[in-house]
Every structure is written in structure tokens, then in C-alpha cells.
């Protein structure tokens, strides 16, 4: 079956005063209809850039984009800003990290949801308002008839994110891109929002790209995970595979450095060093300077050659050591222990 969305070898560079910032360096991603995939990485890994590139938000900016984004057979990168409009909101909905700044402060929540509906549906103002009320009810806002006339600042953080979700889903898009939607929220509110997204996803069967830095959120919500580092996908597999058999040294490092509630480890195992500087990427593997396996891979390959993304049993890994079978189960660094 043809995937619904496929991103191939996507590169995005931003010109700055200090030079070109390479935000994406050959990103790959595929997504099937109705599937929920988690895009995981730390700051600067390119996870948000990926989601915004899919939405075409870098069109008409100074960003230099190369590669391929195919959505239902259409090359989205080739579309003009105007030709992209029928996709935005209608076929692809998007929610953002901070719902307070993502909503217009001067319009009511209801007006903003109704507007999102009216862009793509020829209906009267009154009908659109009713749609907004219904949608607010569906995302669990109590007393939606009254709340529809509130301004964003009159909502609590959790309710605002619910309203954002209502706005993104009002046209019943086939794909929902959620860009760190719970990062700014408290943990009990995050739990409510994750429940909501997962319920709505089951109800509408839309596909979801969930961008997050939290592996726990991925485990709870997603079927498949894409781990990003330095603007590349370094590992892609089912959630179960990733958690039981993490193969890329970075994925393993990430899991080992994560504090857990369960278990009784007193000491965390951090990844040494810091995330890569996107202004001057190494010519070899981007993770090499923080990777303990780079030393055991022969010919200094990790320092001189970018590894390819190798797919085996639906488990894709971008690592010389893994490719040469030099890293096995026994060399796990503390993951899951």
C-alpha cells in the first residue's frame, strides 16, 4: 500500500548572520493512513522543523529546502503558497506547543474555530458558530454554549489546548500534526490531553504525527517512533522494538539518561557532550563525537562518512556500528536496567 505521507531526504537550511544553519540534513519519514507516529528528539534535532515543513510553513521564507514531501501522491514542496491552502486545515491539521500564543488574543475562541471551518466550508456564520460549539463539546469543554464566546486568555492552559485541538480537527483532516502539544502543560493536564487525542484519533481514524521530547508520551500514545538527531532520522521502528531493542547508540543513550519513576536506579547514565552545532556539522556521523562506539568502528568510518539509514524487519537504523554488526544486545548501555 502506498503510504499516505512520505518524506524523503528532506533538507532545510536557514540563512543567518553566522552562516547557514542546517536544521534538516536528509530527513526520512513515512506515515500510513490512521497511524500514530512519534517524532522524538532533543532541542535542535529538527523535529519541529520537519512538522512545519510538511505543513509548508517555510514557503515564501528564506529557508532553502530540498528533497521530497509526498502527501497522497502530491508533491507538497512543488506547490505554491496558494496551492498549499486547500491542504492546510482541511487535509492536514496542526496544533502547537503553547496554545496561548498560538491563538489570536483579540478574537473569541469560538470565532477562531468557526473561522477555521469557514475557510474550507461554505456555510453561514451562524452554522459555523454551531459547529464551533459542537466541536468545543467534543473536546470536553464544559458548557460550550457559553464558553464559545470567551477569549483565549479566559481559558485555563488545558482548556486552551483543547480549544486548539478543536480548531485543528474541525475540518476533520486526514492527518493531525501535534507539535509538542503537552510540553507547556502540567503533568495531570498532559494526561487529560493525551487521553483526548487518543480518543479522538480512535473516533476519526486520522493519522497523527506527535512531536515530543518525552519518550514516555510516545510509549503511551504511538505505535511507531522516529528518533531524530541533528536533523536526521537515526532510528525508526515500532514502539515495542524501540523500547525492547533500541539499536542506535543515541536512542540507547537517551533511554539510559531518562529518569524513571519505576525501578530503583539511583544514578542516571547521561550522554557525554552536548547536541551538535547546526552551523558546522561534522562530515561523518553527526552523533560520532558523543558516541562511545565511534572508537570501535574501523577506519575512523564514523568520523569520515555519514551513515545510511538501513532498514531491516521494519526497523531502520542509521549507524555504521550497527550496519557492521559491531553493536549487539550485550553492549547495551544501561538501557532499561
Amino acid at each position: 500500500m502506498e503510504p499516505m505521507l512520505s518524506v524523503k531526504n528532506l533538507t532545510v537550511k536557514f540563512p543567518t548572520d553566522d552562516g547557514m544553519v542546517a536544521a534538516l540534513n536528509g530527513m526520512d519519514l513515512t506515515l500510513n493512513r490512521g497511524e500514530t507516529v512519534g517524532l522524538v528528539g532533543e532541542s535542535g534535532s529538527g523535529k519541529s522543523v520537519t512538522s512545519q515543513a510538511i505543513m509548508g510553513l517555510f514557503k515564501e521564507s528564506r529557508a532553502v529546502i530540498d528533497g521530497e514531501i509526498t502527501f497522497e501522491g502530491t508533491d507538497l514542496l512543488a506547490l505554491s503558497e496558494d496551492a498549499m491552502r486547500p491542504y492546510r486545515g482541511k487535509k492536514i491539521g496542526m496544533i502547537f506547543q503553547d496554545p496561548l500564543s498560538a491563538m489570536h488574543p483579540f478574537y473569541t475562541v469560538g470565532a477562531q474555530i468557526a473561522e477555521a471551518y469557514q475557510v474550507h466550508n461554505k456555510v453561514s456564520k451562524k452554522a459555523a458558530r454551531q459547529v464551533a460549539i459542537d466541536m468545543l463539546g467534543r473536546v470536553g469543554i464544559p458548557d460550550p454554549k457559553r464558553r464559545v464566546d470567551n477569549y483565549p486568555h479566559e481559558f485555563s492552559g488545558g482548556m486552551r489546548q483543547r480549544a486548539m485541538i478543536a480548531m485543528a480537527l474541525v475540518c476533520e483532516p486526514e492527518l493531525l500534526i501535534a507539535d509538542e502539544p503537552t510540553t507547556a502543560l502540567d503533568v495531570t493536564v498532559q494526561a487529560q490531553i493525551l487521553d483526548l487525542i487518543s480518543d479522538l484519533q480512535a473516533e476519526t481514524n486520522s493519522a497523527v504525527i506527535f512531536v515530543t521530547h518525552d519518550l514516555g508520551v510516545v510509549a503511551q500514545l504511538c505505535k511507531r517512533v522516529v528518533v531524530m538527531y541533528g536533523g536526521q532520522c537515526v532510528e525508526q521502528a515500532s514502539v515495542r522494538q524501540i523500547f525492547q531493542r533500541p539499536s542506535h547508540p543515541y536512542t540507547r543513550g537517551l533511554m539510559a539518561s531518562m529518569p524513571h519513576l519505576a525501578g530503583d536506579t539511583d544514578r542516571l547514565t547521561p550522554i557525554p557532550g552536548s547536541p551538535p552545532a547546526l552551523l558546522a556539522l561534522p562530515k561523518g556521523c553527526i552523533f560520532a563525537d558523543r558516541c562511545e562506539f565511534a572508537k570501535i568502528v574501523p577506519d575512523g568510518r564514523c568520523l569520515n562518512m555519514r551513515p545510511e539509514l538501513i532498514v531491516e524487519d521494519d526497523h531502520a537504523v542509521r549507524c555504521h556500528g550497527h550496519e557492521l554488526k559491531l553493536i549487539d544486545e550485550t553492549s547495551l548501555i544501561g538501557a532499561g536496567s
Binding site: G216, Q220, F243, A262
Partner: peptide
């Protein structure tokens, strides 16, 4: 609070799930 923290344990379905 504890039950709201997303767990990386895939078989954690048996722990209690309390939503405020």
C-alpha cells in the same frame, strides 16, 4: 500525580490510572 506521568513501561496497563 504519579499515575499521570506517562510510563515508558509498555506493559504498565495494570497500574492505576487516575485522571484529575
Amino acid at each position: 500525580l504519579l499515575s499521570a506521568v506517562p510510563s515508558v513501561d509498555l506493559d504498565a496497563a495494570l497500574t492505576e490510572r487516575i485522571r484529575l
